[in-house]
Computed example of a mutant assay.
Amino acid sequence: MQIDNNRLLNMDEASSLLGIKKNTLYQMVMRREIAVVKIGKLNRFRPEDLQAFINENLTERI
């Protein structure tokens, strides 16, 4: 997926980028495990925040 770092991603795009279900992403937002931009009732995601989340959750291969 090609990501434009100048625009916010919606729930579908962010869950696709992370490879998780939309419901799982929503639960992570509610538990404040992942950064979200609230626009009214809408959740939007900055690509750099999603990349930071990925980097923070990397584990070393054994």
Rank of each mutant, 00 (worst) to 15 (best):
E60Y: 14
N10S: 07
L50W: 04
N10L: 01
S15P: 03
L18Y: 10
I39K: 03
Q2F: 01
N43P: 00
L42Y: 11
D12C: 08
L17W: 02
Q2I: 00
E33Y: 06
A35W: 13
L18T: 04
M30A: 12
V37E: 13
Y26Q: 10
L17F: 12
A52Q: 13
R32Y: 11
Q2R: 01
T24H: 09
N43A: 10
F53N: 13
N5Y: 14
Q27K: 15
N5G: 12
L18F: 09
P47I: 01
I20K: 09
L8D: 01
F53W: 15
L18N: 09
T24R: 09
V29F: 00
I34H: 08
A52G: 02
K41L: 11
S16R: 09
M30Y: 11
F53M: 11
M1Y: 02
N5W: 12
N57V: 05
R7S: 06
I20H: 10
A52F: 01
F45Q: 04
F53Q: 09
S15A: 15
A35E: 15
N55A: 14
L58K: 15
I39N: 04
S15T: 00
N55M: 12
G40N: 06
N23Y: 13
L42W: 07
E33N: 12
L8Y: 03
I20A: 09
N6M: 08
N55P: 02
N55V: 10
M30I: 15
A14C: 07
E48Y: 05
L50N: 02
K22G: 12
N57E: 04
I62Y: 08
N57P: 06
R7N: 03
E56T: 09
R44W: 02
L18R: 06
N5F: 15
A35H: 13
L58F: 12
S15Y: 02
N10Q: 04
T24G: 04
I20W: 08
A52S: 12
A35Y: 12
L8W: 02
L50Y: 03
S15L: 01
M28S: 05
I34C: 07
R32M: 11
Q27P: 04
G19Y: 04
S16Q: 08
V36Q: 08
Y26P: 00
A52Y: 06
T24E: 09
R61W: 13
I54P: 04
P47T: 00
V37G: 03
N6Y: 05
R46V: 03
L25Y: 03
T59H: 06
I39T: 07
E33A: 08
K38N: 10
L8P: 00
A35Q: 15
T59N: 10
L9C: 05
K38P: 01
M11D: 06
L50S: 03
M30S: 14
L8C: 01
R31D: 11
I62M: 07
P47G: 02
N43Y: 14
I3Y: 06
T24L: 07
R7C: 05
R46T: 00
M1T: 04
I20G: 10
L9R: 03
I39F: 03
K21F: 09
I54V: 15
E13K: 02
G19L: 04
D12T: 12
